[in-house]
Design a binder for these strands. Structure first.
Lengths: 143, 143
DNA sequence: CAATAATAGATGAAAATGCATCTATATAAG
DNA sequence: CTTATATAGATGCATTTTCATCTATTATTG
């Protein structure tokens, strides 16, 4: 029923480290006049998506987005010309998203900051075995 | 400059796992008519704090809170009678926070849900050595 | 086929968050 | 001592997030 001390320690560390790093990243992006970090995930998913693009609900599942939140975020992305929406012929309720050339460009700009901050923080875990262990431990939690 | 693949994998897993679990916890608390998870951290810090209580800015540092955000969160906690504010004699700018009896009670209620969800998720990392490794890896990131 | 339930997505209203700025007190420097 | 600077905390305003609900379409079931 209740967690062990060590389980709690892992959760607390997970929570604090994520929040701390995320906040710093988000602030850095804003300082550089770039969009918030949340946008990156969307752009990156779309850039990776195979030809056909992605449906909003798929994106939501992948990224753990609140539906209404994602809906409005997409409006902003479309508004900025970073993403385009297309009708999805096979399902009249839905639509398909694709990243634009400008979207790719912005994502690349963001990566300069984002990527370097990932390295700055995560490289503190210098032992490669520990890194691999941590990765697989955390991946168990996502499942 | 840029992160290695493995560094990126760790950050992505950290991010996704935290978000997913946190959201589920927060939703569960609301469903039970309890306050949001963010309140828990504040109450717990105050409950652990030695006799004198805690200053808001100390809390902010510990929990990585935006100052204005914490300020308003404290207003809500005081308003609900979970936290009390006292003048801090040694510094006319500041104040000291203390948890109330009701605050302790609410924290305990929240722990029933929160604790069981920590266990539910984190126990997926069943290997104790991996757990310990993950904890110390993540703690490197907080420092 | 008709009726019911489920799903994709949008939206109004309320709450939370972040940013910039403001006040008041404390500390440092001339 | 006086002025400049830093810190604790509050607050107005804009943006973001959530919650509940709504519409439209698809899937299911009798």
């Amino acid at each position: 029923m209740y967690p062990t001390k060590e389980e709690t320690r892992l959760w607390v560390a997970l929570n604090l480290s994520q929040r701390k790093i995320y906040r710093e990243m988000d602030t850095a992006l804003k300082t550089e006049g770039l969009p918030p970090l949340r946008w990156y995930d969307v752009l990156w998913e779309l850039e990776r998506a195979t030809c056909g693009g992605l449906r909003p609900y798929e994106m939501g599942q992948k990224l753990n987005f609140e539906q209404s939140n994602l809906s409005r975020l997409l409006q902003r992305l479309v508004c900025e010309g970073l993403v385009e929406e297309f009708v999805y012929p096979d399902d009249g309720r839905g639509k398909v998203l694709q990243i634009t050339a400008r979207g790719r460009e912005v994502r690349k700009q963001m990566w300069k900051i984002y990527g370097s901050l990932i390295h700055k923080h995560i490289s503190k875990v210098s032992d490669q075995d520990d890194m691999a262990t941590a990765v697989s431990a955390l991946n168990l939690l996502i499942g």
